[in-house]
Amino acid sequence: MKPVSVEHMSIRFGAVTILPDVSFDVAAGECFGLVGESGSGKSTILRCASMLLSIWTGDVTIGGRSVREMPLNERCRTLQMVFQDPYGSLHPRHSIRTVLSEPLKIQGLDDRERRMREALGDVGLPASFLDRYPHQLSGGQRQRVAIARALILEPEVLLLDEPTSALDVSVQAEILNLLVRLREERGFTYIMVSHDLAVIDHMCDRFAVMQSGEIVEVLPREAIKGNEATHPYARELIGASLEYESVV
């Protein structure tokens, strides 16, 4: 278990500033949520922290080590990401065996067969799925494979970029329960992006409300129910979500 700390993260594309100055801390083994409307920079934080984007300033430390200074292989084995769209995050021409064995080959890990079977078992898929292709799987199964791919390098920190928003409601619950169970078993630190407060309520210990690239308020999970936010935008967001849920 390792804590994550984001310090003064800032990124701009040309004249447009996406994140002016974002800082927050996530305790070891905690699940931290990021909520906000589309375009508020939630996913960008994850892409910066994982170094998929490298042109940002500031720093992200995992267990006291800066992600910039970590060697590539160490970074890969510390931090992994699960993407929003399971239809786009698996290579359409790679079998599940290829998807899972590539990271092991790159990192030079042996005993691949056993690791692949274990990873599939962890996400509740039978080992016979190894020889399937993504187009033979349902959305929920694909997302499980994507989670297995993230798990197979045994990282400490998982970045979840709206892992359930492309799935239908019943499958969403399965995937969320899977993520909760994995955290209990393995002690991952999660940073989870979502625009769905119900998902945050189910998963996270604390969450940050974002508006146009800035964190307006960090709240504990318990604050959702009675809408205890103090910032007007956070109040509005939580209020709208509660209203929506009461209608549904």
Partner: peptide, 24 residues
């Protein structure tokens, strides 16, 4: 996203081009 995932696994540019992009 599958290219991003390959980068997060530490794949080199050569590997990404050969294994992921060329087949497509």
């Amino acid at each position: 996203d599958y290219i991003a995932a390959a980068r997060l696994q530490g794949a080199s540019a050569t590997r990404i081009i050969w294994r992921s992009i060329v087949p497509m």
